[in-house]
Nucleic acid binder design. Structure first.
Lengths: 346, 346
DNA sequence: GCCCCGTATGATACCGGTGTCACCGTCCCC
DNA sequence: GGGGACGGTGACACCGGTATCATACGGGGC
C-alpha cells in the first residue's frame, strides 16, 4: 500500500528522491537505472530496482518529459470520412502501445483547413509529441510531413502506395487488392464491369482505380468510360452512382466500389431498381468493413487489415518492453474475400 | 516566425522567462496573466499579452502540469463491444474539447480483468489526469468510480439510468426509448412481440428491457417468457436468437432488439428463414447506428445521441473559452425513429 | 610507482512552469 | 496621523525528473 498521511490528506506518491534515499544512492543513479544506463553496477541496480518495486514507484512522465524535452505521448492525426477506419487503426495502435508507458492522444483535423499546418505545429510543439501516426488521407499531405520533419518528430504515414521515404511509410498496396477484384469478376465471365471510385483527391482511390484497370487489362478487358463513376466514399454517393449505372441501356453486370460504404449504397440502389444480387448484378466492395458480412447477401470485398496496420505503425514508432523488436516489414497485403455478392454472369 | 538559431540548430520555443524579460516583469506575473489571476493591473496584463502574442508564446503543458500536480489530459476509458459507440462518444468529447488546450487520451480496458483497478490507478495517477470519462458499461463499475473519487479525479459516468451521484452522471434514460418502441409495435397491432436483450450484466440491457415491458404494459400487453431471448449485443447472437424465435410454433410478428447489431442479425435470420421484413416480421433496433439506414428495408430504431452525449460529458468536465458555461443538463432523451422495418400486423 | 583510462557515482544546475511569502504603495477608517 | 486592508509585484523555493561535469576507484602499461 502507498503511504497515506494521517492528517486526512491525499496519498503522496513516491518520488525519485524517496527511492534514492531508501536505496542509499543519489537520485541521478536512480535516474540511470530508470533509463537503463549501462554504467550502473549490477549490485546497485538490483538494490534500486528492489526499492522501486517495494515502494511501487513509477517515474512521473510529466517531469521526465520536461527534462527530456519530449513527452511520452503519441499523436493520432486523422481526417477520415469513415469512422470505422479510424477506430480500427486506433485499436491497432493501442495494441502496440499497451504496457509501453506511452499514451495515445487522438486528434481529428480538417485537412482542408487553412489553419491545418499552424494547428499541427502548435499541437506537436506544445505537447512535444514523441511520435505521430498519419493515416490516409492525412498521410498524403506532403506539407504536413515536411512540417513534422522540420519539427524533428518521428512519424509513420499509412498509405496505399510507397512514397519516397520508405522508413516512415506503411504501405497497403491498394492497387493489388483492386486487381484481385478485377480478375475475380472477369473470371466469373463479367465483361460489363463498372467502377465507382472515390474522390480523385484520395490517393487510395487513385491507386485502387489504377490497380483495377490493370487487373482488367490482364484479362483483356478495359473500363468503359460510361461505366466509370466517381463517388465520394459515402453511402449516398454509392446509391446515386449505382442508379445512374442501372439506368444505362447496357446495364453493367458487375459493380466494383472502391469502398464498402459505396458498395452498400449499390445494394440499396439495386433493391430500388428491382435487381437481384448477385443474379442480376455482382457487387464488390473494398475494406471488408464489418457491414460487409451483415448485408444480404454477404458482400465480397477486399480486406484491408486496418487494425494490423495501426499495430505495425505503433511498432515502428514506440519501443515496448513486451516485444523484442520493432516492426521491420513496412507493408501489408490486401486480400479479396469472396462472399455471396458475386456470381457468374447471366 | 519563431526565432531560429543560425547554427543549423533547432527552433527554440520561447519560454515564460523570455516573455517576462521582454515585458519587463517577473515570470510570476506572466504566470498570473496566463492563469487569469485577478490581481494583475490591467496595463500590465495588456503588455504581457502583447508580448505573448508577438512571440507566439504558449505555455508548456508539461511544466505547468508538473507544478500544478495535474495534467491537461482527459482520459476516455472504454470497454465496449461496439466500436461505433466508442467512436461516437469520442467524437463528441473531442468536439467539446476542441480549442480548450486539453487533449484526449484514449484507453481501452477489459473490465473483467482482475488488474483493472490497479491498472486504472496507475494510469490516472501516473498521468495525473485532469478528468475521466466513463462510457457504459465501464461506467457501471462502482469500484472504479470509488477509486476515482479516492484519487480525487473529476469524472463523468455515461449511463442509462440515474445513479446516486447526479453531478457526475450523464443519463440517457434508455428505458424511455424502449417504451416508445413497445408502444409503437403495440399500436401497429402486434401482440406477439419478442425481445432480444443484451447481456444481463449490462445496465443498459436491464433498463431497456424494463422500459420495454413497461411500454407493453401500458398497452395491456406483456412479454411472454418464450419470446424473451438473451443475446450478447453481437450480430451473431442476434442471428441465433432470431432463429430460435422463428422456429416457434407461434412465431412472433415483431422483434425488438436491445441494440442494432442484434437487430441486424434478425435481418439475416429472417432472410435465411424466408421471412419478409416488415410483412412477416417487424424489427426494431436500438442505438440508430449508421447501419440502420443502410439495411433494406431501413430499420426502425431508437436513436441514442451518442455524439451529443460525448460532447456533454466533455462540457461537464473541461473548461473551454470557446463556450460560455458548462453543461447544466445531465441527461438526453432517446427517440424512436420509424422506418421501413416495422409495419401493421398481418 | 606513476599515469591513463574506463567504470561508477554524486553535486549541482536546469527543464518551464506555479506556490509561498514578503514587500510596497494606496486608500480608508477611526 | 497611525493602522489595517487590499491591490499589485517579485524573490525564491519547489514540482520530479535529466544533463553536465567533477570526482573516486581499480586495473593495465610502462
Amino acid at each position: 500500500m502507498a503511504a497515506r498521511d494521517p492528517g486526512s490528506d491525499k496519498i503522496k506518491r513516491h518520488t525519485i528522491n524517496d527511492v534514492a534515499r531508501l536505496a542509499g544512492v543519489s537520485k541521478k543513479t536512480v535516474s540511470r537505472v530508470i533509463n537503463e544506463s549501462p554504467f550502473v553496477k549490477e549490485e546497485t541496480r538490483k538494490t534500486v530496482l528492489a526499492i522501486m518495486r517495494e515502494t511501487g514507484y513509477v517515474p512521473d512522465p510529466q517531469a521526465r518529459g520536461l527534462a527530456f524535452r519530449r513527452s511520452f505521448l503519441v499523436g493520432l492525426i486523422y481526417d477520415n470520412p469513415n469512422p470505422q477506419h479510424t477506430i480500427s487503426h486506433q485499436q491497432g495502435l493501442l495494441d502496440a502501445m499497451a504496457g509501453s508507458g506511452f499514451e495515445l492522444v487522438v486528434r481529428p483535423v480538417d485537412r482542408h483547413s487553412p489553419r491545418l499546418l499552424a494547428d499541427m505545429r502548435d499541437f506537436v510543439e506544445r505537447q512535444k509529441l514523441f511520435a505521430v501516426v498519419l493515416p490516409s488521407p492525412v498521410s498524403e499531405d506532403e506539407k504536413l510531413a515536411a512540417l513534422l520533419r522540420e519539427l524533428d518528430v518521428p512519424y509513420v504515414r499509412i498509405g496505399s502506395v510507397a512514397l519516397d521515404e520508405p522508413d516512415r511509410m506503411l504501405v497497403s498496396h491498394d492497387g493489388r487488392g483492386a486487381a484481385q477484384a478485377a480478375r475475380h469478376l472477369a473470371d466469373l465471365g463479367h465483361t460489363r464491369i463498372a467502377l465507382i471510385s472515390g474522390p480523385p483527391t484520395f490517393r487510395s482511390s487513385i491507386e485502387r482505380k489504377k490497380g483495377f484497370e490493370e487487373g482488367l487489362a490482364e484479362r483483356g478487358l478495359r473500363l468503359a468510360p460510361e461505366y466509370a463513376k466517381i463517388g465520394a466514399y459515402t453511402y449516398e454517393s454509392g446509391v446515386n452512382a449505382a442508379h445512374e449505372l442501372f439506368a444505362l441501356e447496357a446495364r453493367p453486370t458487375a459493380v466494383f466500389c472502391l469502398n464498402d460504404e459505396m458498395a452498400t449504397g449499390v445494394y440499396t440502389a439495386a433493391r430500388e431498381a428491382g435487381l437481384r444480387i448477385p443474379e442480376d448484378v455482382s457487387v464488390v466492395g473494398y475494406d471488408d468493413a464489418p457491414i460487409a458480412v451483415r448485408l444480404w447477401p454477404p458482400m465480397t470485398s477486399v480486406r484491408l487489415p486496418l487494425r494490423d496496420m495501426g499495430r505495425m505503425a505503433g511498432e515502428m514508432l514506440v519501443p515496448n518492453a513486451l516485444r523484442e523488436k520493432r516492426a521491420d516489414a513496412h507493408e501489408v497485403q490486401p486480400q479479396l474475400v469472396v462472399r455471396g455478392s458475386t456470381g457468374k454472369v447471366g
